[in-house]
Amino acid sequence: MSRIEQVFKDLKKQNKKALIPFITAGDPSVDLTLKILHQMVKSGADMIEIGIPFSDPMADGPVIQRASERALANNVGIKKTFEIVKDFRSTNKTTPIILMGYANPIEAIGLDQFLTLCKDSDIDGVITVDYPPEESENYVKKLKEINVDAIFLLAPTTEKQRIEKIIKQASGFLYYVSLKGVTGAQNIDIDQVKGRVHEIKELTNLPVAVGFGVRDPETAKKVAEFSDAVVIGSRIIQEVESSSEDNLIPNIASIVESIKEAI
């Protein structure tokens, strides 16, 4: 059983939902990324999504784009991201790590090297934002060969037939984008999200995570009632952006804890 499957199975027994916080590798620095990762686990993160910095993150909002820009200014790209995960893995072998990134850095280093690095750093899943199933058959096949889950996004506009097609390629879990927009946008319509998540769950046994507009414990609690996992991204990055170095770790701890408690 994969680590991701194990986490969902264990939580189910306790009647709890998974919390998946997000951070961009190398933001605000390599050292602090590592500290933040460990703190998130301590504060209750069940899995962690790590963004691979990219110069042109088209599906992300301004907050996560700025995180990428800060990371790139620290010379953190795709290779350094893997090094950070490897460091994290030296003391943590249980928390699933999911990489989120865009196709170009992967193609630039080449698929073979990417797969090798995934193995070396013991990655659990990959979300490749701009690889829809039509353009990524071989990629997904190769990921499966090394037991890395290909996690796909589902949008509010994704029709039933297409959801079925995506489910065939997906593993680990499905990531439902809770609003029409980019990461970090405001105000999700809970009832609408609930309806959509139900529709998806009727088609698959894969767990469904919800992300893109969840910013506070209250929303997280509501979302957790009908989904299997909640992703918190821009809200955490905002804290990275606005906290002084001394306050950064405690501030992130308090956000993660408050949301974990709510779900």
Binding site: M58, D130, P132, F152, P156, T157, T158, R162, V177, K180
Partner: peptide, 12 residues
Amino acid sequence: GGTFVAETLIEA
């Protein structure tokens, strides 16, 4: 060429 976009744009 091709269609390398996030799922959020596929329907459009």
